[in-house]
Amino acid sequence: MRTEICCTPGEPALDADEAEALATRLKAVADPSRLRMLSMLAVTDGELCVCDLADAIGIGQPTASHHAKVLVAAGLVEREQRGRWAFYRVIPGALDELGAALRPAIALA
């Protein structure tokens, strides 16, 4: 039976709240339709109507609205209602924050 410790664990890079928020965002982009929608919004200057998102990826408007709602809840996109239609755009900096959270922290000596 081994009683000595083989290594000393370091501090986690994320605290519990940060890990929960990141997991929510990763779950949101883990769906292929949501990932496609997010990529369309990311390359668009401005915003897109949910009807345009639905047509572009070949899903129904109610399904597209559901996927967009998940992206909004994850803090990746924002929604603006205009009459019958909802328009979506990426929240400035949200994708940069997501990418930064996935990169390991580099300690400068």
Rank of each mutant, 00 (worst) to 15 (best):
Thr63Tyr: 12
Ser65Pro: 02
Glu47Asp: 13
Leu71Arg: 02
Ala73Ile: 03
Pro32Gln: 06
Ala100Asp: 04
Leu95Cys: 05
Ala73Asp: 13
Ala73Thr: 11
Leu26Lys: 01
Ala68Glu: 00
Val50Lys: 06
Pro9His: 12
Asp45Met: 03
Met40Leu: 14
Asp15Tyr: 06
Ala23Gln: 10
Asp52Asn: 10
Ala28His: 02
Ala100Leu: 08
Val70Pro: 09
Ala68Lys: 00
Ala30Phe: 02
Leu53Tyr: 08
Leu14Gly: 02
Ala109Val: 15
Thr8Gln: 15
Met37Trp: 03
Ile59Lys: 11
Glu80Lys: 14
Ile91Gln: 03
Ile91Asp: 00
Ala56Gln: 09
Arg79Gly: 12
Ala94Asp: 01
Leu26Asn: 09
Ala86Glu: 02
Glu47Trp: 15
Ala100Trp: 09
Arg36Trp: 12
Pro12Gly: 13
Gln81Arg: 11
Ala13Glu: 15
Leu38Ala: 03
Cys6Tyr: 15
Arg89Val: 00
Asp52Pro: 10
Leu22Asn: 03
Asp17Arg: 11
Trp85Tyr: 13
Ala16Leu: 10
Leu26Met: 03
Pro12Glu: 09
Val72Gly: 11
Glu18Thr: 01
Glu11Asn: 14
Leu35Gly: 14
Ala68Val: 01
Arg82Asp: 06
Phe87Asp: 05
Phe87Asn: 07
Asp31Ala: 06
Gly75Gln: 05
Ser65Thr: 09
Met37Asp: 02
Cys51Ile: 14
Tyr88Arg: 02
Val77Arg: 08
Val50Trp: 07
Pro9Met: 12
Gly75Ala: 10
Leu35Met: 15
Ala56Trp: 03
Gly60Trp: 04
Ala74Glu: 05
His67Asp: 05
Asp52Trp: 10
Val43Pro: 00
Thr3Trp: 15
Glu97Thr: 10
Val29Leu: 06
Glu97Lys: 12
Met37Gly: 01
